[in-house]
Every structure is written in structure tokens, then in C-alpha cells.
Computed example of a mutant assay.
Amino acid sequence: MTCTYNFNAGPGALPSEVLQEAQEEFLSIHGIGASVMEISHRSKQYEAIHNEAQQLIKELLNLSSEYDVLFLQGGASTQFFMVPINFLAEGKTAGYVHSGTWSGKAWKEAKKLGKTMILASGEKNQFKQLPDIDSLNIPKEMVYVHLTSNETIGGIQFKNFPDTGDVPLVVDMSSDIMSRPIDASKFSLIYAGAQKNLGPAGVTIVIVRRSLLELIPDSIPDILSYGVHAKHNSLFNTPPVFSVYMVNLVLKWIVKKGGLQGMAALNRQKAELIYHVLDNSGGFYQGLVHKESRSMMNITFGACSPEIENKLLKELEQEGFMGLKGHRDAGHLRASIYNAVPYEHCKALADFLVDFKKRNG
């Protein structure tokens, strides 16, 4: 089988060990003679997988007993409107930090449902630099503050998070959850589509402080209520059972790799390897964002001319490098180096970029 170097932005790479384990269990989960996709979500076999995945998330993020872990559907895009539906009551205001495409989409959905305020924005810098969040002016009556920890399209990432006092902090961590240790106690709600760092598309992880659930009105549809899903342990309707099963396997893989400390060390090594090539190319390659704002997950860069970029992308594809064309809104190139992308694949990319420059510089 031809070796492929997977740098797709999402769905992204999964650990090869996890894929092999899933393959071995595909026809008969835990020896019961049926696939995990065929058994009832009420069965003891599935509920064990479901509950174990929740517990692993709690342990890896060092969550206190104040939090519930939910498995929902619809991706982060559904959370863009679920958050305001649950918490943005009439006459109230929600604050948004606008750092790029995905935070902008979340804000636009919230605007349809209630009053919002932009607390900080990177727009004046074309979203190539993180907005200043150290001195946010947050009215005490604000119902929540929302930010996106990592912008996959622009390639910027928050290294620290704001102190919002008594105002709940909500974060979209779809593209960097479980990539590094965080102080989860800063947040009242964390949500993340699984398809970058935690598993295949289909399940969205929501971590919510129980005190926040008390604010949810009874008037919203049950399927959109975090409170209903928490009450039913994410079994109010049929969950995406295979995706949850895969998340369970990925979480166990993260534990074996040293937990979030191990992930952070590996991800730092991978990112530094590629950024070093870009920064020492004499201008042949250019990173697309300010250095202090750079993402450890999505490395965005360009080459010295459109012709060179097109040639580079063509040769990369021929050599088995997958997913390096930049998002249509940003152009250029993007290497997404999520948890499951091996160091060796990043080394292969770095070596190729160096060689390509020698041949075309």
C-alpha cells in the first residue's frame, strides 16, 4: 500500500493503532458477535463504551464533579446556535471574541437569536494576529463570553484564555481539544467536533458546568436543550454510536502517549520542525500569520509566487502528501498536524520543503 502523509484539516488523521483496533473489532465488538454499529445504544455493551469515554475526558481534562460530558450531533456548527438558544434570553447580551472564520460564524448565528457584542476582534489585522483579550471590557450582566481557541482556516491559536470573572466563558475547541493541557475550570462550556483530534466526524463533545444548566428555559425544544441531554446522559435520542466508540479508542491512545502533557510535547516538536523550515527559507516560504499568534495545529504558509505554489502542491500530491492545499477562503497551503499526525510525517514534509527550495529557489 502506498504511504500517504495525511495533513487534512478535517476530518483529520486518526492514529494507525486505533484504526487497526477498530478494524479487528469491526464485525464483533468485545466478542458478542455483532458490530458496535448494530447493537442497541441501550445495551450494556454500548453504555460501557459511552460511560468510559465520558470518564476518560473528565480524567484527561481534570474536570471536577461540577461538569457533565455530553455526546451530541450536528458538529460545532450546531453549537453555534445551541449556545445562544440555551442561554441568550430576550433582553440579555452575549459577548464574542472575533478571531477569524469560525468565531465569526458563531457570532453571526448568535446575532439571529439575540443581542450580541464584539468584545475583541482581529479584523483590523486581517485575522492574521490574535485580538487582545487581556483587558476585555465585560459588562457584569453579560450572559456569556464566547471565543474560538484555534482558527483552522487562518492558522492562529490562543495560548492563554481571558479571566471573565462571574461571566461564563464558552469556547469552541474543535481543532485543538486534547492537544495540550488546559485549565478547564476557566470554562463554563467547552464544545468540540471530534473530527480533528478525537475521532471521526459525527459526534460533538460538549462539556458543561451544571450550574449553567439551571439557566436553560423550558420553552426550547428538548432536542436542543443541554439540560435534557445531560438528564438523559446523552441517550435522549440515538447517539452516533460508532463515532463515540472511536472517540473512546482515541482517548485511550492519548493516555498511552502520556496524556495531554505528552500530546503537547509531541505537537510542539512537530510544529517547530515545520516552522523552522519556513522561517529559514530566505523568503522562499512565508508563514501567513504573526509568529506570536501561530497555531500548533494548523500551519498556514505560502511560497514566493503563485507558479511556485502550484508546482509545489502538484509535486506534494505526487509524493503522497494529502490535504495541503489551503482553505478556499485563505488560499496558499496549510499543514494540519493534529495529535494523530506522526512526527515522521512532519519530518518528511519538512525535508520535502527543503529539497523543493533547493531545486526551485
Rank of each mutant, 00 (worst) to 15 (best):
M322K: 08
N51Q: 15
S179G: 03
F236D: 10
L56N: 14
G302Q: 03
P240W: 08
G227S: 15
R334F: 00
D351E: 14
S185Y: 05
S336C: 15
M82Q: 13
W102F: 15
S295Y: 04
V171C: 12
Q261A: 08
E123C: 07
E52S: 15
L353Y: 13
Q286Y: 12
Q318M: 09
K115G: 03
M263Y: 08
S225Q: 13
G91I: 11
S16G: 03
Y67D: 02
N150F: 12
F284N: 03
T101L: 05
V170M: 11
E272Q: 15
K44C: 04
L60T: 01
K357P: 05
I182F: 08
C346L: 02
F87G: 00
N233E: 13
A106G: 02
H229N: 06
L312W: 02
D163C: 05
Y46C: 10
E123R: 11
V206I: 06
L147V: 01
Y338R: 14
S28K: 02
R334Q: 01
Q73W: 09
L130T: 05
L215E: 13
N248E: 13
Y245W: 15
E123Q: 14
T93R: 11
R42N: 13
N86W: 00
H30A: 15
V244L: 08
M117N: 14
K44E: 13
G259Q: 06
G258F: 12
I32K: 09
V208F: 07
I216F: 00
S243M: 10
F284D: 03
E17P: 00
E25K: 08
Y343R: 11
R42L: 14
Q55R: 14
L19T: 03
Q55T: 14
S305F: 00
V97P: 01
K311F: 09
Y191S: 02
M173W: 04
I207E: 00
R42Q: 14
K256L: 11
Q286K: 15
K270M: 10
V36S: 09
G122E: 12
Y46E: 10
L249T: 08
Y5R: 01
G283K: 13
V170W: 11
E17C: 05
R209N: 09
E109V: 13
S65I: 10
D351K: 12
H232V: 07
K270Y: 06
I299C: 03
N86A: 01
F127D: 04
V208L: 08
L215G: 04
A201D: 10
Q129F: 09
S185N: 12
K58N: 01
L19K: 03
E307P: 01
K111M: 15
R209K: 11
G154I: 05
I118W: 04
D163I: 08
G259D: 03
I337T: 14
L213C: 07
V36R: 12
L212T: 07
P342R: 05
T300Y: 01
N160Y: 08
Q79K: 01
S16A: 11
E25I: 07
E317Q: 11
L72F: 01
S243A: 15
Q126S: 10
I337S: 04
K347N: 07
A13F: 08
F26Y: 12
N62M: 10
Y5W: 06
L63A: 06
